[in-house]
Design a protein around this nucleic acid. Structure first.
Lengths: 131, 131
DNA sequence: GTACAGCTTCAAGTGCGGTTGAAGGTCAAG
DNA sequence: CTTGACCTTCAACCGCACTTGAAGCTGTAC
């Protein structure tokens, strides 16, 4: 398969596939006599894995590590499971940070609703935000 | 006040203050004979506003707009209130997206827990993630 | 006079995950 | 034989909010 066909099958841009190669996530494929990249079907699973990993918020660096384990011939299961657990913790922290921020913002919105613009002293930019 | 003193008072880097000037969030200050920036005390409130805005996730572009309204002599209250409401909506969307992702990840973690690495076929990278 | 902190400008780099553009080679159809 | 879709490499650019570095001037204390 040429790069365009692979790209269409998986739903990524050809430029992204070349970038993954450059970044060490996929191996350099064979070339045709004219220099075109010539992929084997295995690439589809590999790109599918990258897509799935990205979709849950893993970085390309993390996925590259998983792929390297796989390429050494080992099963990356436990490593993947650990990444998932770490990712869940990150999300929990992110959510609680956002909830805290939301509480602060609703308090500010409340202030804003009871705020008479004529109280708005020209000496400060905006007391709604700065309290 | 010189830039370093302002930076220490507000808790930002001098490079950030120069950047805000460049980006149009703060006006160009007077200069001493030797070319040093010489700030009036009003800058502290302005930088405090920028910090407060950033802390709730507003972008510099949004804050620049608020400051421009203030500089025209108008009260930016209603504009700020609208930004806050929009920001709350963004956060709600972000949180629900993260919650959805978390549900997917806990499902994957569950799969991983019941997964025998020997089931891990060498033909695919990792079936935990790709399902 | 000399050390040292502090200021100046300008250009370039950071992270992340790519995209875009230029300049050109390749391949099948008509 | 030309058109057009596809491929190649390489370098530069995107957003965002800065930081870093180089090269040099200023100001004060000793």
């Amino acid at each position: 398969m040429q790069i365009g066909e692979v790209a269409r099958s998986v739903g990524v841009a050809t430029s992204a596939i070349r970038y993954y190669e450059e970044a060490g996530l996929i191996p350099e494929p064979e070339r045709t006599r004219s220099g075109y990249r010539e992929y084997q079907p295995e690439i589809l699973d590999r790109l599918g894995f990258i897509r799935a990993g990205q979709a849950v918020g893993l970085t390309l660096a993390q996925l590259r590590d998983v792929l390297a384990i796989r390429d050494r011939g080992d099963a990356p299961c436990t490593h993947v499971a650990a990444l998932i657990d770490t990712r869940i913790d990150e999300i929990d922290q992110r959510i609680s940070g956002l909830r805290k921020l939301r509480r602060e913002l609703t308090a500010l919105a409340e202030t804003a609703a009871h705020f008479d613009p004529s109280d708005c002293s020209p000496g400060s930019v905006c007391r709604i935000l700065t309290g």
